[in-house]
Design a protein around this nucleic acid. Structure first.
Ligand code: MN
Ligand code: MN
Ligand code: ZN
Ligand code: ZN
Lengths: 140, 140
DNA sequence: TACGATTTGCAATTAGATTGCATTTGGTTT
DNA sequence: AAACCAAATGCAATCTAATTGCAAATCGTA
């Protein structure tokens, strides 16, 4: 496991450090996006500023992306394999009103409809709110 | 003009005050959403806290809605006529990378595609980034 | 081992949103 | 008109999240 993570960091040209390994491991093992505060709770020995800068580094290297839902602390999630430094695969996100988690919807078939005349688009952000598959089950 | 505004406030059951009239007038006369800071600049005599609470009041009464694009300060825009206290007409927003303004797209034909199994949606937020009609013209 | 470039830890700052509280204001009741 | 009450306002203070400065710790390499 740790080897895979180091491999990933190497591939993205990010210098390997203990902090980075553990933060990346946490993100990889979590099915939803995480905020700095949440990462801080999961890795109590880690410093907030270090987490912040680690996330920024990862973001710059297209290892993860910021997820901005309606809630306050910004969350971060691992990028798709397709993402590179100069190309980010845009995709919708789903925010569950029950568990509060926000998920990346990589397989959701969504395309932007034609814009009004004289408007050009280069990216979008779609956040859907509702109840996630997991909370659906536990709520019967 | 002022009479129309007072009429609108009356219809929404909001007590009429000087602050509210002028803040609402500004929002009505602006084609894009406005942040508290921007309103503060346009109405220098107004207090930030008062603007804040006025916007909250307006929001609660379905006179306007918060617009959350990728940029930091939250913006606010007048609601559509269809909006009521218990029903808000959801619509996409357009953020212009050139002028920085964010517009409501009331006439944009957008419907949420079918979600993955076991996911239910009750609302969404779509923000499109690009260049607006106005900046398009000035950029030839 | 010494050196130079990064990364890290800790404290402090910034930005924006939000609140407490005393005062003012506006409408209503004697 | 004077007293009265509730809501609105102004100003300062607080809170949360994001971000930065700087010195010490690290790491790879000469
Ligand atoms: Mn995502
Ligand atoms: Mn809008
Ligand atoms: Zn859920
Ligand atoms: Zn524009």
């Amino acid at each position: 496991m740790k080897t895979e993570i180091e491999e990933l960091l190497r591939k993205k040209e990010i210098k390997i450090t203990a902090n980075r390994i553990l933060i990346l491991e946490l993100l990889l093992n979590t099915p939803h996006s995480l905020s700095i505060a949440t990462i801080e709770k999961a890795l109590p020995w880690a410093d907030r500023a270090t987490i912040f800068r680690t996330l920024k580094t990862f973001e710059k290297k297209a290892l993860l992306h910021a997820v901005k839902d309606d809630d306050k602390p910004i969350k971060y999630a691992i990028c798709s394999d397709a993402c590179e430094v100069n190309y980010h695969k845009i995709h919708p996100h789903f925010h569950c009103d029950t568990c509060g988690n926000t998920f990346c919807l990589y397989d959701y078939d969504f395309r932007l409809p034609k814009l009004p005349d004289n408007y050009t688009a280069d990216k979008y952000s779609l956040v859907i709110n509702g109840i996630c598959s997991n909370c659906q089950k536990h709520n019967i």
